[in-house]
Structures are given as structure tokens and as C-alpha cells.
Amino acid sequence: MSAAPTAPSSPQAKKKAPLGTLYRGREGMWSWVAHRVTGVAIFFFLLVHVLDTSLVRVSPEAYNEVIGTYKNPVMGLGEAGLVAAIVFHAFNGVRIMLVDFWAKGPKYQRVMLWIVIGLFVVTMAGFLPRHLMHVFGGE
């Protein structure tokens, strides 16, 4: 991006992250934080999700009863949050791979985060209305 060149002595220059670091400050750091937070959240859901699915081995009634709780509105909003976490983690994961494997990745890492956020918004805009209709009975 074409940022205005700042004189080395200007106060802004002092606030800038040291050259050559990608994970300290601003987009590089906050995307790392968000990646970590979403990753931990998804991991704990995964443990619960394998347990609830395992109820198919107990009886159809047991499975249907527990999966029924996923269909109430509060859980429906939780699922929306879960999908949001997964979509961000997935798209930012692609960004991480591009930073690591594409020669120009580190140079464009900030722009790529804004692309990730843009794709996230588009994906959630496609998913949310449909999911919320299923949850809140719009049919």
C-alpha cells in the first residue's frame, strides 16, 4: 500500500514496529492473537462435538434428544459464533501459509489480513441469514 513516507525523526517513526518483525504490533500481532483464540475455542468445541455425535452409538432417542438442544436459539447463536471462528481461522490460516511459503507473503501480510476480513464478511453474510432462518424457524 502507498503509505506516505515518514521522516525518520518524526514521532510516528518511533511507534512503528522494528523492521523485519511481522508478529509485533498491529495486523501481524492481532491476527496471531485472533488465530490463537479461535483455535483454542474450536478445539474445545471439537471435544464436545465428538462426544455428542458418539450418542448415535447409544440410541437414536439419546442422539435426537441431545442434538435437539443444538436447535434452540441460544445454541443457534453459539453455532454462528463457532462458524465465525472456523471461517476466520481457515482464511487466516491460508494467509499464514502465504506468508511462510510465498516469497512476497511477508511484504503483503497486512493487505492479506484485510482480504481475509473481507472474505470473512462475505462468507458470514452468505451463511448467517440461512442458518438463523433454520434456527429461528423462518423456513
Partner: peptide, 29 residues
């Protein structure tokens, strides 16, 4: 694994939450 999981999980979410009647259609059957 991350690259593979993007395909696997997005496919899983689409089949179970988006296609058909989404989560309201999920039961033992």
C-alpha cells in the same frame, strides 16, 4: 493438515448447516 481441513470442514459445514434444512434437519436418520 490445515489446507486439507479447510476442504473437509467447509464441506462438513455446508452439508450439515447450509444444504437442505440445515441444522433443523439433523437427527439420527
Amino acid at each position: 493438515s490445515g489446507a486439507l481441513l479447510i476442504v473437509l470442514i467447509f464441506g462438513h459445514l455446508f452439508m450439515n448447516l447450509v444444504a437442505g434444512d440445515g441444522i433443523s434437519a439433523i437427527d439420527f436418520g
